[in-house]
Simulated scan of single mutants.
Amino acid sequence: MFYSFFDPTYLLVIIGLALSMAASSYVNRTFRHYDRYRSQSTTTGTAAARFILSQSGITDVGVQGISGDLTDNYNGQTKVLSLSESTANSTSVAAIGVAAHECGHAVQDHVNYWPMRLRTALVPAANLGSTLSLPIIIVGVLLSYNQALINLGILLFSLALLFQLVTLPVEFNASRRALKILSDGQVLTHDEVPMVRKVLIAAALTYVAGALSTFLQLLRLVLLFGGHRDND
């Protein structure tokens, strides 16, 4: 029953972890590199965010600082854009790019961008699937490979992958919106925008790596448990 804990499909998990670690390392390295470039406008991440929100006609979103490093986020429920310590007061090109990306999410919310709405709607299901999938699979295995329970667990785990797949276009679109806003030359020069593009591409790769890692974990579950039949 427990042979699967030592089987070769662990290679899929290892590959997924390696991809996630490599993407995380790359985004941190890229951010640190362009964080050394001070913007010619000397605009801080906070000031840039407020300017972009104003230019986009968004008046109901607040901007606040939060602790942490690259913990920037936009909360559509509270209408608050939170910028980390490495972004809020920094005048670097990288910081402005990150702030602009989060503003991209605020713009998506403002215009009712439907993939963002879909992602928000999937949050409860994805959280439920991530929490219950493995326990249900384990119970199914313990009950003489009850395939109905195992399949239910695999289906629940697939909800996490679905959420990450929907997240990809949301993140890419937010970055495109950010680059479009910054390209008007009021916050960054035309020479600085390509630097931001590299930072945002690196950040997007973390979401791609996360989706690939979850897919590999799902594939492992299918290979391990998807082909069993109930014992007579």
Rank of each mutant, 00 (worst) to 15 (best):
H110K: 04
G153M: 00
L142N: 14
S82Q: 13
A126H: 03
H105D: 06
V123C: 12
T91G: 14
N151T: 03
Y113K: 13
A99Q: 05
G153A: 10
S82W: 00
A126N: 06
V123K: 11
G97H: 09
S133P: 03
L132H: 04
L83V: 03
Q77L: 14
I154H: 14
L118T: 11
K79F: 00
I154W: 08
S82D: 01
I154T: 09
I137M: 12
V93T: 01
A88N: 09
T87S: 12
R119M: 12
E102F: 07
S86M: 08
S86E: 06
I136K: 10
L155N: 02
L134P: 00
G129K: 09
S133F: 10
L81M: 07
T131L: 14
G104Y: 04
H101N: 08
N151W: 08
V123N: 10
V98R: 14
A126G: 04
I136R: 11
R117W: 00
S84P: 07
P124Q: 12
S130F: 04
P135T: 14
L143H: 01
S82H: 10
S84I: 02
A121M: 15
C103G: 05
G153C: 03
Q77V: 08
R119N: 03
S82A: 14
L155Q: 12
A95E: 06
S92H: 13
I136P: 05
A126T: 05
I150P: 14
D109H: 15
L118H: 00
S130C: 05
I96L: 06
N112S: 10
N112E: 09
A99L: 02
L152S: 14
T78Y: 02
G140T: 07
P135D: 09
E85Y: 09
G97I: 01
L128Y: 13
L132R: 11
L81W: 08
N146W: 03
I154N: 06
L83P: 10
Y113R: 00
H105M: 08
A126Y: 03
V123S: 09
G97T: 08
I136A: 08
I136Y: 06
L134S: 07
S84F: 01
V107E: 03
A106I: 02
H101L: 09
P124E: 11
H101V: 06
Y145F: 07
P124V: 08
E85P: 00
T87D: 02
N127S: 14
G97C: 07
E102A: 02
S86Y: 02
V111L: 01
